[in-house]
Nucleic acid binder design. Structure first.
Lengths: 145, 145
DNA sequence: GTTAGCATTGAGACTAACTATCAGTAGAAC
DNA sequence: GTTCTACTGATAGTTAGTCTCAATGCTAAC
């Protein structure tokens, strides 16, 4: 509830109008499970136009209120995010996503900048693996099968 | 020439047939500039079906003879690659891409594995910045403008 | 060299994920 | 309230890729 209010305030701060449709999209996004597609949101907001849902999610992306997740099969999903710079650890079996903010890419980036004479602006890191539960399940399967 | 021969051999090794269309796609891919889209290849191979170009590039991806590059605008490009695990440093102004193999994400990944109990399988890192030339050009513009 | 089997092909329909257009609507500032 | 203009929904278009299927053509066996 107050989360929505916070988002609304940030939208207003940027000069965006708070419309009925936008509110409905915000609510739907908040009610999604961990990560979702734009299509999921479209289905949760009957009556709101496709384009409006895409537009609203793009605004949320611009405001860093939502982030993209690249799944290992190449699919792009979305996820609420109140934090700033962070990365994702994606389970390739169950699709669970964990954020991690401890991003020690900095030394690498600095070294890279020196070696290449690039002025480095940003980086994007996704890590793929198998979560504890899926790891245990797999071990069991191997033992049984 | 010999590059093509090498690729052909790797395809044969995997049991893929060497057809006229595949040869044409291979040639076209080799003649592309640093990075390209599938559409670029389609235009360079008139007469070869769209699906065939996509299929052939997918095979090259599977064999790690081609890799994907995620540009900073979200577009996905492709690039010849004979090396194994590597990452990209992309210039956000001119689009130039440099590979780097020195990937010190390992310590981070190990720590992450310990903290989250994930069994980590892979990671994907793209770094964005401004190359030496574009940096100089920009500085000049600022000075003049 | 011929044949047979099956991988591959090209055309085209289909899908997913978005963007563009545009006339109509409705926030919000006054 | 009025007015201005951002926003909306419908819909068409685009991009990037997959699926289907009958026809073709590698390749290996004879």
């Amino acid at each position: 509830m107050s989360d929505i209010q916070l988002i609304v305030e940030r939208l207003e701060m940027r000069g965006h109008r708070i419309t009925r449709s936008r509110r409905r999209v915000l609510n739907a996004v908040q009610e999604q499970p961990a990560h979702f597609t734009v299509d999921d949101v479209i289905h949760s907001t009957p009556g709101v136009g496709r384009a409006t849902v895409f537009r609203t999610i793009r605004i949320l992306l611009d405001l860093n209120l939502v982030c993209r997740i690249l799944l290992d099969d190449g699919a792009l999903h979305y996820r609420m995010s109140t934090r700033g710079h962070h990365h994702h650890l994606v389970c390739v079996d169950c699709g669970q996503v964990e954020d991690f903010t401890k991003c020690d890419v900095e030394p690498l980036v600095r070294e890279l900048a020196k070696a290449t004479e690039y002025e480095i602006e940003a980086h994007w890191l996704e890590v793929y693996g198998r979560c504890r539960v899926c790891r245990l399940l797999k071990k069991e399967q191997v033992a049984v099968g």
